[in-house]
Write a protein that binds this DNA or RNA. Structure first.
Lengths: 240, 240
DNA sequence: CGTCAAATTGACAAGGTTCAAGGACCGTGG
DNA sequence: CCACGGTCCTTGAACCTTGTCAATTTGACG
């Protein structure tokens, strides 16, 4: 969590912070990450990073920007399965000939790098495993949201989740963070229409629990909101 | 896929068939599985096999019966995340101190055994990895169902998925299989009420695509239904 | 035959969608 | 610097899918 050379132009800072919080990384692992992050790849909004059914050439690490795993139905309806934020891994799996089971698309300008291979650093491997477990837990949380929460709860719950995840990457503090996506995307995430997302957000803002100006969100009292909607954050391993 | 001793009292047949279809298993792996399956554990309906947040002592293999991964909201609402069918693994993950991120409950009388440890047979390890990837794909399919399908499509899509999964374990043939759960459970799975599930099933039956007597379901023409609702089955690796 | 859970039905309410239009915002080019 | 164009946000009204509540029927089983 220390040992990141201060002179690095740290595009990777958020990603490294998140990974090192999943599992403490030794200097060698940090160095490898830093080196990997130098070879970065930029992807523009709406460009596909992975395509459903195609081979996964390598595991990628999100350094900055937001991506989404999406599934498209035959008639064009779209469902966002999950957001991929800085520090998240794309295409991580133990398959030999892995096929992507969902398309991954950039929602904002995104900086990626190829994630260091497994088997190089035990610490890094551990962080990968924990990351994968959290991914799965997020999918489950998403199922519960879509299946059993109303619009109000879905929005709140998602915002709380984003707050937690971004906080881990140092991208949120005291309930304040950027949500650089349109209400349309939120709608496709929460199984609602953008019209209804809009109305729900207005209701929440009117209640004063939330401010949302431009792309900046501020949750007034995350704990209170958690209690209000009865949220239980996913727990995977010891600390988190 | 052969080599299962014919004299075994084969409670484990379905599970072994499924696993061997995920990845061909050599005789040693089959033998190990067969031995593991001898020490079986019976769980009665509504009993919890894993509890959210508790440690996962060992990976289990479902031999017979249906289980469900469920998430309970604070006010009692319940969401079934996925069904666990014969041949499915419970608690499979690479964590060192893994915590269950969902409760697993028996829906019917269930026979389980402890799954052979990893690292014993390469074939078995591969089957495990593929199984885990499929699990994840099923979660994603579930998200798309809940987020972007209506009641009619949700029911159809779930039945098609169950047909495919049970077929792989030899428990479904030509669209015929048992669904040993109440409409209440289906409702908790599909994010609907049991009343609405009931009405939707009646509609589907009236259209003649489906018969559902007792706990026996018959899909008249699975391919036609697939096309009708624009279903695309999840693909993970080469064959499946 | 009685009992209990599960399935079914009806009437009504509500949450969310649809469609259509107007307004705010922002980068671009003249 | 301002006008233009596009995307996103916002709003209203009608509509429809699904939920709620409560009662009735069915079916399995002792």
């Amino acid at each position: 969590m220390s040992a990141i050379p201060a002179d690095e132009p740290n595009i990777a800072a958020a990603a490294i912070l998140r990974l090192s919080r999943l599992h403490a990384l030794d200097d060698a692992a940090l160095a490898t990450l830093t080196v990997s992050a130098r070879r970065l790849r930029r992807v523009n909004p709406d460009n596909e990073i992975l395509v459903e059914g195609k081979r996964i050439p390598e595991t990628l690490l999100v350094l900055s920007g937001w991506c989404a795993r999406v599934r498209q139905l035959a008639d064009g309806r779209r469902q966002v399965l999950s957001f991929l934020l800085p520090g998240d891994l794309i295409g991580l799996c133990d398959q030999v000939e892995p096929l992507a089971c969902s398309t991954v698309v950039a929602l904002t300008p995104v900086d990626l790098c190829v994630a260091p291979d497994r088997g190089m650093h035990p610490d890094l491997d551990r962080a990968y495993m924990i990351s994968r477990a959290r991914d799965e837990a997020l999918l489950m949380a998403q199922i519960a949201r879509l299946g059993r929460m109303n619009a109000y709860e879905r929005v709140m719950d998602l915002l709380l989740e984003l707050n937690e995840r971004l906080e881990m990457a140092g991208l949120a503090a005291s309930g304040r963070f950027a949500v650089p996506v349109t209400q349309e995307v939120l709608a496709d995430t929460l199984g609602l229409t953008s019209v209804h997302i809009n109305r729900t957000l207005q209701l929440i803002r009117a209640e004063g629990m939330l401010s949302w100006k431009g792309r900046e969100v501020v949750l007034r009292d995350a704990d209170a909101i958690s209690r209000l909607i009865g949220r239980t954050a996913p727990r995977i391993s010891g600390q988190f």
